[in-house]
């Protein structure tokens, strides 16, 4: 870790930090071409302290995005490749007998890192999945009756293939809810793809990256985001959106209070990244698809729209008060 001495959060110059965060976005955009919005959303998600789920077909750069963020944020990084035979102990670690000390010693698993990439999380069995998800929720793991805290900050970026692919265990709604945001990357644009094809090897570029932030600065950004002014007018709008999802007959269930809180935090982080001094409706609108897309389900009678279409309709249906 570059800086062992914790710096009091208040003394950090927030505008400079925001500028640094802007550099993170700019540099990541050099690796993942044409996906600035998704990169910014990912960063907002991590700043507001939430876990991120990236869902898309293989080969669009999910893993690369996670690795890029880990490097640029200067966080300790571990990757867990989820497979159908993955066991909980493979994630959280296990106590192993040691002859020298004549006792058991805990060997921490890959979960003990500041940023954990859980790759293809829906390929593992529910048992392995829930080990990860419990660690995400509690921010600590308990092995053999000993509770061990996970490092601070602790982020999980999980990737998953769309559910209809063969050999997957889709995450249940209750566990999807643990992710603050779910984003998809999608195909790159025409020009971005051309640049990608002409450009250098992504892996080499990735290794050349220098950290633009550190863990302390990330925590300071989070504290600053949570202090950002949220006006009554914005809360009116937020509640109007939430109320709409609860009252409109097309949704199976409305947004929970947890989802409403997540919306607020994500909008604050986004507003901070945008350099706003307060949260504007546009900030809320920007994070809304990522935050509510995986929490809303349409009733079976409605033709299944993509979650992007659902959230766009939701946005257009609720006027800004």
């Amino acid at each position: 870790m570059p800086n062992d001495q914790p710096i009091p959060i208040r003394e950090l110059p927030i505008p400079a930090l925001v500028q640094k965060a802007g550099r993170v976005i700019a540099e990541a955009s050099q690796i993942i071409l044409g996906k600035e919005v998704q990169i910014r959303l990912s960063l907002a998600c991590l700043i507001s302290g939430g876990h991120l789920l990236i869902e898309d077909i293989p080969g669009v750069g999910k893993t690369t995005l996670a690795q890029t963020l880990a490097r640029l944020l200067g966080l300790s990084y571990q990757r867990i490749q989820f497979t159908s035979d993955l066991l909980p102990a493979d994630i959280i670690g296990a106590s192993i007998y040691e002859r020298q000390s004549d006792g058991f010693r805990f060997h921490p698993g890959p979960i003990f890192a500041q940023l954990v990439l859980a790759d293809e999380v829906n390929r593992a069995t529910p048992k392995a999945q829930s080990a990860l998800l419990e660690a995400m929720e509690e921010r600590q793991v308990t092995v053999d009756g000993v509770t061990r805290p996970l490092p601070q900050p602790f982020f999980v970026i999980a990737t998953q293939n769309p559910m209809h692919q063969v050999g997957t265990f889709p995450l249940p709604e209750s566990q999807l809810d643990r992710f603050l945001m779910r984003i998809d990357l999608g195909y790159p644009g025409e020009q971005a793809e051309r640049d990608l094809l002409r450009g250098r090897n992504r892996r080499e570029l990735l290794h050349a990256l220098q950290a633009a932030l550190n863990a302390q600065e990330l925590l300071a950004l989070r504290a600053a985001a949570f202090k950002l002014h949220v006006s009554d007018a914005l809360l009116d709008y937020l509640q109007a959106v939430v109320r709409y999802t609860r009252e409109a007959p097309r949704f199976e269930a409305g947004l929970s209070p947890r989802a409403a809180i997540a919306l607020k935090h994500a909008a604050q982080a986004w507003a901070l990244l945008m350099g706003h001094t307060g949260v504007a409706p546009e900030d809320l609108q920007a994070v809304l698809p990522g935050v509510v897309g995986h929490r809303l389900r349409l009733k079976a009678t409605h033709e299944s729209n993509s979650s992007a279409a659902v959230t766009r309709e939701l946005l257009e249906a609720v006027p800004i008060p």
């Binding site: 504007a280 409706p281 546009e282 609108q285 946005l315 257009e316 006027p319």
Partner: peptide
């Protein structure tokens, strides 16, 4: 202005 359009947009 569209009802759902934010002031900045």
């Amino acid at each position: 202005r569209q009802p759902h359009e934010g002031p900045l947009d």
